[in-house]
């Protein structure tokens, strides 16, 4: 078994220690004897939709995000659309999540996004939405909670055809108003829980590994259980932080 992961623009989109997610996936595969391969796809580089099981897109600063948005629309949109339709796992976090939509506002500019999800990100008066956050989601294996941290100026609104990733228990979520968080389409997930969210939610990491491998194997693999006592404690710690606000 092999999990083939590609990170899009890791040099530009890594502002909240996004590499923690990749490392977390890598170790959890290695400890189970699952081969792990990692690629990076940067500016100007085409993407082969069939060559990857899990596609990761992190968050960036405004300047980097602007560079990435234009490049990604022109060099990777087609391949990403094919990969999503074909059931590839996509995890897009924070700025990467915003890029999935039709468009987002950056300062006074309206920047075209990938259009892979029916959502728009706009600026509104008011402070950045910053803080610990907890949401409830269901990825087909029952409801469960994700805990993390969010820090975004943009407010995201889902269109009619879009399904949220989950609902907000604590924190702001997409816009601080409608109680929704993130987006989900097939195995594509976008979320404002930024940076290393997998290390705080080991369950999600394993679920993504399962979904990604199931697409190649035709059925979900049995993942060997790991000793997750530290990981569970970390989830509890992030959960308590969200309760504190």
């Amino acid at each position: 078994m092999e999990l083939r992961v590609v990170a899009l623009y890791p040099e530009q989109m890594n502002i909240y220690a996004d590499r923690g997610n990749i490392l977390f996936l890598q170790r959890r595969c290695e400890w189970r004897g699952i081969q792990f391969s990692y690629d990076a796809s940067g500016p100007g580089e085409p993407l082969d939709a069939a060559a990857h099981d899990l596609i990761y897109l992190g968050g960036g600063q405004d300047r980097d995000q602007r560079i990435v948005a234009g490049d990604m629309v022109s060099t990777k949109r087609q391949a990403l659309a094919e990969a999503v339709s074909d059931g590839a796992v996509v995890l897009a976090v924070c700025g990467g999540y915003q890029l999935l939509g039709q468009s987002y506002e950056l300062g006074d500019e309206r920047i075209e996004g990938l259009g892979l999800a029916d959502l728009e990100t706009v600026r509104e008066p008011g402070p950045r939405l910053i803080g610990n956050v907890e949401i409830e989601i269901d990825l087909g294996d029952g409801p469960t909670r994700l805990a993390g941290f969010e820090n975004h100026g943009g407010r995201t609104y889902l269109g009619e055809g879009a399904r949220p990733l989950g609902r907000v228990i604590r924190g702001f979520g997409n816009n601080g108003k409608d109680g929704l968080e993130g987006v989900r389409r097939e195995n594509m997930i976008g979320t404002y829980l930024h940076g290393p969210l997998l290390p705080k939610n080991a369950w999600l990491a394993d679920r993504l590994i399962e979904l990604a491998l199931a697409r190649r194997l035709g059925s979900p693999p049995d993942l060997a259980p790991l000793d997750d006592s530290l990981e569970s404690a970390a989830h509890q710690s992030a959960h308590r932080a969200a309760l504190r606000g």
Partner: peptide, 23 residues
Amino acid sequence: GTRAPEMAVRLKYAGMPPSVIEV
């Protein structure tokens, strides 16, 4: 510290064996 368990997870994935890590 207030986020001790998250530090411990970071160290585990940095390659330190859980047996040397205490929270």
